[in-house]
Design a protein around this nucleic acid. Sequence first.
DNA 1: CAGTATCCGTTGCGATACTG
DNA 2: CAGTATCGCAACGGATACTG
Lengths: 119, 119
Amino acid sequence: MPTRRHSRLDCSPGCAVEAAISLIDGKWKSVILFHLMHGTMRFNALGRTIGGITQRSLITQLRELEEDGLVTRKIYPEVPPKVEYSLTELGQSMAPVLQALKAWGEDNLHRFGPPPQAE
Amino acid sequence: MPTRRHSRLDCSPGCAVEAAISLIDGKWKSVILFHLMHGTMRFNALGRTIGGITQRSLITQLRELEEDGLVTRKIYPEVPPKVEYSLTELGQSMAPVLQALKAWGEDNLHRFGPPPQAE
DNA sequence: CAGTATCCGTTGCGATACTG
DNA sequence: CAGTATCGCAACGGATACTG
């Protein structure tokens, strides 16, 4: 029982915002979506690209994204197994959000994490 | 020790997205920001407008938003106490994000929560 | 390769009660 | 009114090991 994660979709003003966010909360979802916007990816490739995420977390987040209709999972019945993840139309429609997020982050990141120096 | 909540601002591609999200995660932050975009609000007013949030949660989220420089707190030294919360410039700059979120939510909410009927 | 299973610490957050 | 203090649980998420 997936424990309906979407708390309260019972609308008050600002609820749309909350609903939208509830889909991309979690520590990794936004990043996953972001990477999938660049195209289809396989499970481990996604994990490597993101970096620092465990298989458990990755699969959990992916399953939730799938459950929410943002991501699709294509299984190639072959061995070794091959599974590709990509965005659905709905997932693609998140693009503006992700971009706004990215733009904001890039503009303001320096305020929080003083640039990691030039090494 | 506020336990630096911003997990990893140590950038990998997509990190900007994660950083931005980390500021508006939590169950309520986005909604708080959203309501503050309409103007300054007092503590309890904010709580009532949002609905369903406890004082503890509200204050916690507000303090974090403040700590992150998105919100300011103006105290009127009078009795009964009066405290007003409003967005900083940085907070205002979140507008596009919030709007993207809201737009997306409004366009796609129906997919998750079947419209609350006409009562 | 793409997962699943188990364990377990941390955090989020609600409930409730109290205060200046 | 605008908080603070305590409690407690459930969910999140990391580590690690195992599997078809």
